[in-house]
């Protein structure tokens, strides 16, 4: 464990908590892509099956359980409890265009052709594109509440910090997980445009982040 990875995990947890609390307290999921949240729940489900097969550390186990609980709770809030505020019109990204290529690639490019390993690979590839429905929804509505922007900021920072973690681990222990690194770079690149908007608009205190 190193500071980059720990702060990455903390950012990830903060992002997930920000989103959950935003929906819970405002009793509305307006502006939130339910599709992205379903994809994230799928990412955690396919990645954390090793909860039942291998024990790494208390931290690892606790964080996986917390991520799974919050992810499914958020999906539950969006599609059940506050479903009347779910803007399915704007959340129109065709997720099959993500799922099919990601599933295909995870069968072609993986470390081992075993069920757990292919599911892990699927989750890595899927995570790199899971935010696209949310980013697409924001470009479609043309704006995002600043709380949603903060959520995206922490979510983008988390994987960027993981890139630093992989640099550090490569430098200190020769660790190199090519699938995770390449996907992490792609994932972070998708946030670059948002980061620019965030630091030029949201931080100007304009309340909402309105896209050009």
């Amino acid at each position: 464990m190193n500071i980059f990875r720990l702060s990455g995990d903390v950012c990830h947890l903060i992002a997930i908590i920000i989103l959950f609390l935003k929906i819970w307290r405002s009793k509305s999921c307006a502006g939130i892509s339910g599709k992205s949240q379903v994809l994230f729940a799928l990412v955690f489900t396919t990645r954390y099956l090793d909860l039942f097969t291998s024990y790494i550390s208390a931290y690892n186990t606790v964080m996986k359980v917390v991520y799974l609980l919050l992810a499914y709770s958020t999906v539950g809030l969006i599609f059940f409890r506050f479903r009347n505020s779910y803007d399915s019109e704007s959340d129109s990204f065709r997720v099959e265009f993500l799922l099919v290529p990601v599933a295909g690639l995870s069968f072609l490019e993986n470390y081992a052709f075993t069920p757990l390993e292919i599911l892990w690979t699927f989750s890595i590839y899927l995570e790199s594109v899971a935010i696209l429905p949310q980013l697409f929804m924001i470009t479609k509505t043309g704006e995002a509440e600043s709380i949603t922007a903060h959520y995206l900021l922490f979510l983008g920072l988390y994987r960027a910090l993981y890139l630093a973690n992989w640099l550090w681990r490569f430098h200190t222990e020769g660790f190199y997980d090519q699938i995770a690194v390449v996907s992490g770079v792609v994932q972070t690149i998708f946030y670059c445009d948002f980061f620019y908007l965030y630091f030029t608009r949201v931080l100007r205190g304009s309340g909402k982040m309105s896209l050009p």
């Binding site: 990875r5 995990d9 990830h12 990645r47 090793d50 291998s54 790494i56 550390s57 690892n60 964080m63 996986k64 991520y67 470390y111 081992a112 390993e117 892990w120 993981y162 973690n165 222990e173 020769g174 660790f175 997980d177 995770a180």
Partner: peptide, 10 residues
Amino acid sequence: EYNIYNHDEL
């Protein structure tokens, strides 16, 4: 040598 299969990262 790091065993790539036991993914120890979240």
